[in-house]
Nucleic acid binder design. Structure first.
Lengths: 211, 211
DNA sequence: TCAAATTTGTGAATTATTTGACAATCTGAT
DNA sequence: ATCAGATTGTCAAATAATTCACAAATTTGA
């Protein structure tokens, strides 16, 4: 399999989302041209992107919406179930645990953990919040693939290190720091404040244009 | 001012974060070489990036940490106060409102709004949660620049449209949809499920390498 | 059945981004 | 004051990503 650039990978979920919507609206087929107008990208880019993974379309016809949706889902690994836990059961952790759409896509949030005694024992959609100290054994025994880290950076770094020994394959990291992990372990960062700073950069750029 | 590529802008907040840490540790100066080793990027890229905005360093010396930190902050628009409201006061909205670091960077979360009667009136760090219907007047009268949209896509699209008429300059959009806005209005998307799909893409890629 | 209209997949051209290399300049020790 | 060592800013080269353009294949309607 050829090496797929990160730029392409980042676009796949968006295709997936648009195809899901088309599917929900009962649209059976779509051409790269029509999709490009919907999504505000070039038709050429859509075709190039998809062709990294194989020829899903047909000349003169376009792409079958359902088929392409399923194929992209498979490429994204959504055909398999992914067992995850959330470490840090504050508002952010609970927000993630409550997000119903993850369930729909095969993400099973098996448990939440926290160190805060006020939270431990609290009931959620995903069972009672457990003591953070239990997370290591839990991850080992329950075949957990993904850990969402929704806690401050100091505990996050330390806890992530310990979890590496428990067989965790991937971190979904919301902590305000870069985790250092060995090769083969995946870290996907969601740095909210950095996203907000991009926004304010654009805001101040805007205000200069106006002058 | 020359046009700065998006790739550069996306890296600035990370530089800012590392400089803040250096500063906190009392480090006065840093060379692009040392920073490149810390951050796992090339020194050339750091110098190239910074030079888009001016020459902040000095030959033979490197960069003054404090000065560079302040300069990048200014570039990112963090020298000004930004008044924002959060629309959608569920777990995610509350998580954002409670995140203390935003405050430190000049983001003032002035109010939270929701349509859920169970939430309206609830006390938070940022005052009582208000009725969503009040957000339009509030935004007009209170000089709100940024709206965080932390609600499902259907209401988000409609509410965003109405807010456009109230002088909102930027949306920080957590809803699972692409907002369509006129030129000059900024949308910064945080699509959590898309980030999680990138993660699972990498996971399934990994598992294929192993075979 | 046939021809016009579509539309893909893909090689080539273009554009953008990243890296390499080094002259110019500054630091700091003597 | 001088010089070895360090380090930037920047031009050029290399690499990567995007767009263009079109042959080949398919559909659609007469």
């Amino acid at each position: 399999m050829k090496n797929i650039s990160n730029a392409v990978i980042k676009r796949l979920p968006r295709y997936y989302r648009y195809l899901d919507e088309l599917r929900a609206n009962g649209v059976e087929r779509i051409s790269s041209g029509d999709l490009s107008r919907m999504m505000n990208v070039t038709a050429s880019q859509i075709r190039q992107d998809l062709n990294n993974f194989g020829g899903f379309g047909q000349q003169g016809y376009g792409y079958n919406v359902n088929y392409l949706f399923e194929e992209i889902g498979t490429i994204l690994g959504l055909d398999k179930e992914h067992r995850m836990v959330v470490v840090g059961a504050g508002n952010l952790g609970q927000a993630i645990a409550n997000y119903a759409n993850f369930d729909k896509r095969g993400f099973k949030i098996v448990a939440l953990f926290d160190s805060n005694l006020d939270l431990i024992g609290k009931k959620t959609r995903n069972g009672e919040i457990k003591d953070i100290e239990e997370v290591y054994d839990f991850v080992k025994n329950e075949n957990i693939e993904i850990v969402a880290l929704t806690l401050p950076k100091e505990p996050a770094t330390e806890i992530a290190m310990k979890l590496l020994d428990c067989g965790v394959k991937a971190f979904w990291n919301f902590a305000h720091t870069d985790l250092e992990v060995p090769d083969g372990v995946i870290v996907e960062n969601v740095h909210l404040s950095e996203s907000l700073m991009e926004l304010t950069y654009k805001l101040s750029e805007q205000s200069q244009v106006g002058k």
